[in-house]
Each structure stands twice: as structure tokens, then as C-alpha cells.
Simulated scan of single mutants.
Amino acid sequence: MGMGREARGRRAATTAALLAATVTAALAAGCTSGGGPPDDGRGSAAASERGASPEATDGSVLAVKIDNAGSARPPTGVDAADVVYVEQVEGGLSRLMAVYATKLPKAVGPVRSARESDLELLRQFDRPTLAFSGAQTKLLPLIDKAPLRAATPGSASEAFFRDPDRSAPHNLYVRPERLVPEAPGRAALTTGFRYGSAPAGGTTTASQTVRYPAARFTFTWSDSRDRWLVGMDGTPATAADGKRMAAATVVVQYVKVRESAFRDFLGNNTPYTETVGSGKAKVLRDGRAYDVNWEREDATDGTAFTTGDGAPVNFAKGQVWVVYTKAP
């Protein structure tokens, strides 16, 4: 429905006041993360005013944006995710997106802000719920138009809480059961991933490292756990309960990472990770590495991984990590 000029003016004034108050508070608290964006409450307030709804229906996955700055570790609930996506953000840092379909942990976090790349990545799912702390004001209209359910502290306050023992902005958590009625099941994971026996060939590999300008991930094979142990910035990565984070399959996917139209409050450009297209990838499973091809023809498609002769590549059963990095 249309909105009168006077009503639009009142709404703009209210939004400006909210943004000004929140940014002032964030700057006063020093809420930055090594060149990354400040606390995202400003985006949450704007998203709430825009009427974002967190309500989900059966069959929808839950995706949560998770802070991965050193001061935000260890994370909570990542070990329960079916898929963990790793992307580069401002200042060469990294951020995680955990996707849940087969089980829901009691809490996930620390929750941080959404990026434009997330919208393209999530198009492969049927109306997913995206839990995040907020977003840049200019990005909010794109989130509104995206086929997803946005859940922020402003639109679903009952689902989020702050940990008083941690400092902002690294202390926001979400309770998944308050956003989705139940785990939708494996059928909701329309990623295009296939599971089964390993392909022929491959190279015995003890570890694989992926470097961003200001972050580093190392995956080390463990025969005893039959998993790839996760390391971040030269340190073993653990969950909040102290257990080592580990993946059954790791995909190092070489993609185009370009500048977007967005910048953080310090002026750093927000990288855009292109997940539609085709290229090369390295699949790690069972202590071996396989050089493969990837293709995602449309944003609504999952990603297909194939060998040089076009045969589908199966993943090992269990959690999958997908690390997006610039093509060499």
C-alpha cells in the first residue's frame, strides 16, 4: 500500500534517530573487531522497523551468521551444523555461516551481521530462515526482497540473548528452537552435495591450509577420529564445550571474490563471494585430496562437484565445511 509524504517523513526521522543512537553507543563501547564492522544493532533496529518476520515453516533450513574474530572464539553450536560455509569479510577477516537441517542445538553464536553474498548463497534453499544481528542500512532492502525469513534481535527478540560474561559485539546468541519449529530433515539440504563411497584416485594428504589476508584455516587429518581437525590462525579450533571442531568433508572452493557496492563504517570494502558459476575445487575426505570441478548454473541450484571425466564426487557422511577462497 502507498504511504503519504508526511508518514514517510516521520518514518525516515525515526529510522535516522535509531541509527544515530545505536552508532553512537557502538562507537562509545569500541565495538569493532580488528577492522571489521561495529556491533550490528543498527541493522537489527532497521530490520525490525521494516517488519522482518522470523516465522518458519516445515522444510526450511536455519542458517546463522557466526562471528569468527579471535575474540569471538570459541563458538557455540557450530559442531551441530550440517554445513559450515566460510567466507572472507572486511579487513581480510573471516566469518562463518552454519546451516542446520538434521538437528538443532540449544544455542548458536556469537551471531553477527549478514552480507550481500549470503543472499545468493541461500537461494539454493527453500525459504530458509537467516539469523543475523543486523546489516548495513543500504543492504536491508535487498534482504527484504530475498526469498528468506530474516530473524534479528529486532524482529525476534525472544530468540536472542546476550552472554553477560562476554563483551559486545561478540556476545549475541540465538536459540534455534524459537525460530524454527523443528529440524526439517536432510531433504531440506538442497545443496547438491552427494554422499557415498570415495571417488577413485586422490592424493594422500595430511593437512590443507587456506589463507585469507588476515585469517588462516588448516584442516589436519586424524585417523583416530576419521575427521579433518579444524585449526584457525595457527590454533586448534574448539567448540564452547572444549571439543575439537572437525569435519568429515572439507571443500576448498576456488571462486571469484570481488568488491561489492558496500563498505563498513571504517571505509573497508565488503568482499562479494560469487557462488554461482563454475571453477575448480579441492575435496578432502578420508585423508585424501581430490582435484575436482564445481558448477552452480543458477542461484536456485545446488553446487555439483565432478571429477575430470564428469563423474559426480561423493562426500563422506557427516559435517561438511566449504571454504570459499580466491581462485589461484
Rank of each mutant, 00 (worst) to 15 (best):
V61K: 01
A63V: 08
A63D: 04
A63K: 00
V64G: 01
K65D: 14
D67Q: 00
N68R: 03
A69D: 14
S71P: 02
S71C: 04
S71R: 01
A72I: 05
R73W: 08
R73I: 11
R73Y: 07
P75V: 13
P75C: 09
T76V: 14
T76F: 11
G77W: 08
G77C: 11
G77D: 14
G77V: 11
V78P: 14
V78Y: 10
D79R: 01
D79P: 11
A80I: 07
A80P: 06
A80M: 05
D82T: 03
D82H: 00
V83S: 08
V83I: 13
Y85D: 09
E87F: 07
E87T: 10
Q88G: 06
Q88A: 07
Q88T: 12
E90H: 02
G91N: 10
G92T: 08
G92D: 08
L93E: 13
R95H: 12
R95D: 15
R95L: 10
L96G: 02
L96Y: 14
M97V: 08
M97F: 03
A98P: 12
A98L: 07
Y100S: 05
Y100F: 15
Y100A: 03
Y100T: 10
A101C: 12
A101D: 14
K103A: 15
K103N: 13
L104G: 03
L104F: 11
P105N: 08
P105M: 09
K106M: 14
K106E: 15
V108C: 06
G109K: 01
P110Y: 06
P110H: 10
V111Q: 11
R112F: 14
A114C: 13
R115K: 04
E116N: 02
E116C: 06
D118R: 00
L119H: 04
L119A: 08
E120D: 12
L121R: 05
L121C: 07
L122H: 08
Q124T: 09
Q124V: 09
Q124W: 09
Q124Y: 04
Q124F: 10
D126H: 07
D126M: 07
R127E: 15
R127K: 13
P128C: 02
P128Q: 02
P128D: 05
T129C: 13
L130E: 05
